[in-house]
Design a protein around this nucleic acid. Sequence first.
DNA 1: CTAAAAATTTAGACTAATCTAAAAATTTAT
DNA 2: ATAAATTTTTAGATTAGTCTAAATTTTTAG
Lengths: 219, 219
Amino acid sequence: MQSFTEENYLKTIYYLANRQQGEVSTNALAEMTATKAASVTDMLRKLADKQLIHYKKYQGVRLTEEGERLALQVIRRHRLWEVFLVEKLGFGWEAVHEIAEELEHVRSEELVARLDTYLGRPKFDPHGDPIPTPAGKMPETGFRKLSDVATGEDVCLRAVLEHSTEFLQHLDHSNLTLGCSVTVTEINAFDKSVLVQIENDRTVFVSYEVAKNLLVDSH
Amino acid sequence: MQSFTEENYLKTIYYLANRQQGEVSTNALAEMTATKAASVTDMLRKLADKQLIHYKKYQGVRLTEEGERLALQVIRRHRLWEVFLVEKLGFGWEAVHEIAEELEHVRSEELVARLDTYLGRPKFDPHGDPIPTPAGKMPETGFRKLSDVATGEDVCLRAVLEHSTEFLQHLDHSNLTLGCSVTVTEINAFDKSVLVQIENDRTVFVSYEVAKNLLVDSH
DNA sequence: CTAAAAATTTAGACTAATCTAAAAATTTAT
DNA sequence: ATAAATTTTTAGATTAGTCTAAATTTTTAG
Ligand SMILES: [Mn+2]
Ligand SMILES: [Mn+2]
Ligand SMILES: [Mn+2]
Ligand SMILES: [Mn+2]
């Protein structure tokens, strides 16, 4: 059994490993967990002793199979709770992350299984992130960035890469909702901003910064 | 802001103070929290420093107003989550306490308020225990024990005093469900066991041990 | 009312998680 | 290829919560 702290480290290692390529560095972990590098080193030794990570001094860190399984269980719980908070309790998608950070540490297999059933076995969380399987596998999504879509293409908004309140509220104000169908009508050659038509209705302006953080697929 | 541990001590002090009369003893707390008396003493000093309890060495302990308010907030969260687990996720009433022990420590006013609304502002948890108000007051229930009911009286099952799995499952098997109306048809003079007729239908045998742990009211 | 028993507190130690400052290893740049 | 810069680890402390063993206070009983 792991502590809250150990679970948070495992989750963070998972995220960083999938953000960059190869081993995760001590400093990157220190920044993400808002601790100091010295503290991270101590924890890495502990996780290595428990066989949850591969760790050689000065060489960075990588999850073992068991470590990845545990990390994905935590992420599964996090994302299921986020679905609950949005779908059942009516929270906005910008408000749920903080609360899910706490709920994710309630470890009861039975609870997670029943919550999953209650929510209708969702495949994605409110931000479009895939929910890991009970067995501990992260589903692949073939999403690409809106900034990579060609003019005239008709795609479906699926996920956000940026989770900040400001970004999510900006999307709300622009009527850009996950699940909605958009057509790229124009791409500005200079600043790469795009105009998209939402659900064959109104057209909205999307800056390159925003388009880079929106994931879509082709229905 | 209190730690999980501090919240658990406050809650335990509240329960013990309302179980007996007067101050709560160090040993009673040690037993309830499954720690040693020496550890309790350390924590009592800390809670006293934070003005959450009245504490004089060797004299036992009592919650301050602020301490009681916090204890009741924890109990409110615990009981609301128990309602959620039974009503929404379909857990049996014997299975929810353990999980609620963890969920009760997720501190988000907004979460508790929304959960309360979502559940329909319940007044009682699955065991018939009253849910404290958001302001931190414990509602009074005028319940009395089934063992104190006279022959011929018609009452409603409202709560259990004993929360063990064995007891709760025994009630399930006897078709004794909270909310159901029972009439005492006979009281055995020797062992104080009673016969009750459930919902004007079948009659079941209730031992004195069980009757002492069932609370009822007169509709 | 004293002496034994019981309850409580103190003293000193341990673990988990963190920190700062200093040392060591690795990477980068001349 | 060496020196400088950066990253990482070690050393030594700190805090929360816990423990055992010993000391102290309160309660109970003769
Ligand atoms: Mn999140
Ligand atoms: Mn999310
Ligand atoms: Mn309970
Ligand atoms: Mn209960």
